[in-house]
């Protein structure tokens, strides 16, 4: 079965790495995966999004225009992609930065205060992992263990001391689902 996810926010929020971790994990689990970034010329700021496809069968189009799942990390992303989500799909909202509810009635929605939770953990940069934890609680696209294994591979050894913080962020994100 094919699942397509759109992750959107501004540059520097870890949008790209969130998607990369998902496809890396999918690959470890022997699934078909694809990741496509879309961003402007700037390194930080500006809008950034990436398309993630995870499937049991070969993927026809990895270009995601009607996602099953949307992760919106800021207001402009929600405005841009809310209507594109498939009927019956799921939207995850970073309610720390997004001040409105969704307009759609035909999708499921989860409000996760990702930035606040990450700041409580001591590092706002793991807001993306809080969101990922929430997503994986709802849809077992890939296993948490695979995410941690992927993190070990993509982070250089000198950054391995950050692994426990990331694991905590994933856990807190999963717990936030209960507050919805």
């Amino acid at each position: 079965m094919l699942k397509q996810i759109m992750i959107a926010g501004f540059g520097g929020q870890g949008i790209m790495s969130m998607g990369q971790l998902m496809v890396y994990s999918g690959m470890i689990e022997g699934k078909e995966v694809a990741w496509i970034p879309s961003y402007g010329p700037e390194m930080r700021g500006g809008t950034a999004n990436c398309s993630v496809s995870i499937s049991d069968d070969p993927i026809s189009s990895p270009h995601v225009t009607e996602p099953d799942i949307l992760i919106a990390m800021n207001n402009p992303s929600l405005d841009k992609f809310e209507m594109s989500v498939k009927n019956g799909g799921v939207i995850f909202i970073n309610s720390s930065l997004i001040d409105r509810k969704i307009k759609r009635k035909d999708v499921k929605v989860y409000y996760i205060s990702a930035n606040d939770k990450a700041t409580e953990l001591g590092d706002v940069r793991v807001a993306n992992m809080v969101m990922l934890g929430a997503l994986l609680k709802i849809d077992k696209l890939v296993k948490i263990d695979s995410i941690m294994e992927s993190l070990k591979k993509v982070l250089s050894k000198s950054k391995h001391h950050l692994l426990p913080l990331n694991a905590q962020a994933l856990e807190i994100g999963a717990r936030e689902i209960g507050n919805n």
Partner: peptide
């Protein structure tokens, strides 16, 4: 450009 920047196994 999409093919160049896409990641796949």
């Amino acid at each position: 450009g999409m093919l160049g920047q896409m990641m796949e196994p």
